[in-house]
Amino acid sequence: MTPSLLIDVQGLTKTFGGVTALDKVDFSVAPGRIAGLIGPNGAGKSTFFNVLTGVLPGNGGEIRFDGKRLNGLQPHARVRLGMVRTFQKIHPFHGMTVLESVMVGCHTRGGAGMLSAMLRLPAVKAEERRFREAAEAALAFVGLGRQAQAPADALPLGHQRLLQIACGLVTDPRVMLLDEPASGLDANETARLADLLIAIRAQGKTLVLVEHDMSLVMKICDQITVLSFGRRLANGSPDEVRRNPKVIEAYLGSGEHRA
């Protein structure tokens, strides 16, 4: 384990019954970088995020985050350590506004509990104000400032993707794991997303990007890991990966290259 790595995953394995969704996958990323994780449909990319964030238990391997072992930690505890993710399938919080949804992401920044909510002491009000300001700033940052009061489930898909990013940003993460943030976006939206991700990296955050949009991946990623049938097929710079014959074959073989 080199301390210079923010995420260091060794031999991560996950099976669903007879299906091996992840087969001894190694993955690492240094702070401040954008890592791409690509692969055909069903390769295990989302499963990798699910096990990495604790949403699903793994069957083997080790996950280290800034040197600390994460195995067995609950998802919310991993958020507290600075790891946050978005979902490929959006899950808007029904019945909540966009602003309230982002304020959910402020959860780990405060401590007001059930009883203090009922008493609403000055400290609680101050905390609410901080949350609101942080959430508004995050919404403005991703370009949803004007949608703050809209019901979260009323946003179009492109905006839902941005909302997820805003929710993640307010947790003040060190690393954001983004599962297909560009899926469902048009070319303009995707271009703006690329700028947004670069701006997030400029704040010193690390990004791991699962994406099918190859031009986006090639454009912004410093390193790329390719998964196929749960195995790590290749790992390296965008150029190395692009030229790797195994990668070309995996993509052509499954007819999955959507650039």
């Binding site: 609950q74 998802p75 919310h76 946050v84 979902f87 899950h91 919080f93 992401g105 929710c167």
Partner: peptide, 10 residues
């Protein structure tokens, strides 16, 4: 609304 989404925000 969605348990995993809430847990994944802390």
């Amino acid at each position: 609304a969605h348990e995993a989404a809430a847990a994944s925000l802390g």
